[in-house]
Design a protein around this nucleic acid. Sequence first.
DNA 1: CATGTGTGCTTCGAGTTCGAAGCATCTGCG
DNA 2: CGCAGATGCTTCGAACTCGAAGCACACATG
Lengths: 172, 172
Amino acid sequence: MTGAELDLGGVRLPEPRQLEAYFALTEAVSLLQHHVEQQLRAEGGISNIQFQILMALNGVERLTMTELADGVVYSRSGLTYQAAQLEKAGLVTRRPSPEDERATLVAITDRGRETVGKVLPGHIEVTRRLLYEAIPAADLDRLGDTMARVRDHIREEPPRSAAPRRKPAPKR
Amino acid sequence: MTGAELDLGGVRLPEPRQLEAYFALTEAVSLLQHHVEQQLRAEGGISNIQFQILMALNGVERLTMTELADGVVYSRSGLTYQAAQLEKAGLVTRRPSPEDERATLVAITDRGRETVGKVLPGHIEVTRRLLYEAIPAADLDRLGDTMARVRDHIREEPPRSAAPRRKPAPKR
DNA sequence: CATGTGTGCTTCGAGTTCGAAGCATCTGCG
DNA sequence: CGCAGATGCTTCGAACTCGAAGCACACATG
């Protein structure tokens, strides 16, 4: 078994390298996000979460709040707040869906697209400088594959108690 | 360099795979942190940042606020707030340094160590289930190495303007 | 077409976060 | 000594975050 594990005081500790990986992962991402946040705030006056919302809306016609929430790791009430901020800033519009009065359709405006265009180069520059530049391209590819698997694995994780809004099974 | 890059509208976009890696990375870590947060809150009544602070203090005699801040990606005022919370909960103590009246020495208490002991097994279990279980051990090792490099690379990044509290270079 | 249950979103209150400004101490230097 | 600038930390105000509770509409069933 490769899983040689220490057993201290009843706690089965993973090997040091595993802990190392976890800590390096979270710390590096924290640092990265911090820099990204600065850049977006400085160049476009938006937060990272707002940027992600705009990016999610950028390619499509419009999305409901729920669809938006599925694409962004975020609480629903927080999303409501941010959507309101973005609307106030004129970067998105919100209107009730004609098909389902409960649903809110969110769409990006021209001004929103303009903002994306304004901050995207800097955003890319920051990630290039901090992430792509730090490691060889081959490693980056492997990293991407690995993290995609982790992401999918966690997404499939059954929630601890209540079901977390799965995709709404095609009606009927 | 394999870096064939698109050039759209003046913006040099990185290759799709690079963007993929970045998105997968941040999303996976967000999801992971969310689960970790839940577990720590449920089993020990502490937040992830509080847990990290306790872990940083766990091995050592005591640390100043600045030393603590260097180990945790966090604002200084936020650290003051969390240290106050932890002190209120009896998990750490704070007292002015005798050598430098400005500095605050923070130390973990027995109750703090007890709390760490209480939440650590669950914490490890969560990371095992969500991270270690998702990928082969060899990939995890590579991931750790890669992210350690990224972390170090970013830490060396010169700040955009003012110097960001480097290690206090033995006076000079 | 009533009435119960599910769903989509917002509101609410409490707690947390950050940067800027403030306070106290320390250090170098004439 | 005296004092200017640096350093370590906290306070402050405003913004953001989350989960729980609430509201309104949708859909099924009799």
